[in-house]
Design a protein around this nucleic acid. Structure first.
Length: 157
DNA sequence: GCCAACGTTGGC
DNA sequence: GCCAACGTTGGC
């Protein structure tokens, strides 16, 4: 029972938690709170396993792109911010007895060079990436082993 | 700050 | 259950 790791891409605004912020917490796990999209939630709940590898993607910033690698460090559990009236992620319709939103924990693996979105768009091997599909906005997307290998090769350049 | 694409909401 | 209105995302 030692399944091969699966691969994901997770978007974060560097203002919230950049790869440098994550790197400043070595060995610590960080709750990936604030996901408020059912598809992304379902990827965490149904797809993610501890040990899965994550492309850490900076979005909504001057240089969007992959900035590092993280690892899934827990299975999905209820996101505490949905019950916190002071949180921007507060969801008044979610009840503690039936939590609507979940999060996993992630932990830092390494910082990479920044692989810009615009470079990724030019690589045929990455054309299938969910991130690169027109209009794709999902904050968590699966990455195939082939796509993962292609990204690793680009990062080594 | 613009705006296209997409998801969610809610009236019917 | 349809679908128009609205809000959000996120690159540019």
């Amino acid at each position: 029972m030692n399944a091969a790791p699966q691969y994901w891409l997770m978007k974060i605004e560097p203002d919230e938690c950049s790869i440098d912020d994550l790197a400043a917490l070595p060995g610590q796990t960080v709750p990936w709170t604030g996901v408020r999209n059912y598809q992304a939630r379902n990827f965490m709940r149904d797809g993610m396993r501890v040990g899965d590898q994550v492309l850490y993607y900076h979005s909504s910033c001057a240089e969007p792109g992959v900035a590092g690698i993280a690892e899934v460090a827990s299975s999905a559990y209820p996101d505490a911010t949905q019950f916190d009236a002071k949180s921007p992620y507060f969801d008044p319709k979610s009840k503690p007895e039936a939590p609507r939103w979940l999060n996993v924990d992630v932990k830092f693996r390494k910082k990479t060079r920044l692989l810009p979105l615009k470079d990724m768009r030019e690589v045929p091997a990455l054309a299938t990436m969910r991130l690169l599909q027109p209009g794709s906005r999902l904050s968590i997307t699966p990455v195939s082993p082939e796509e993962w290998q292609a990204v690793m090769a680009l990062l080594d350049r």
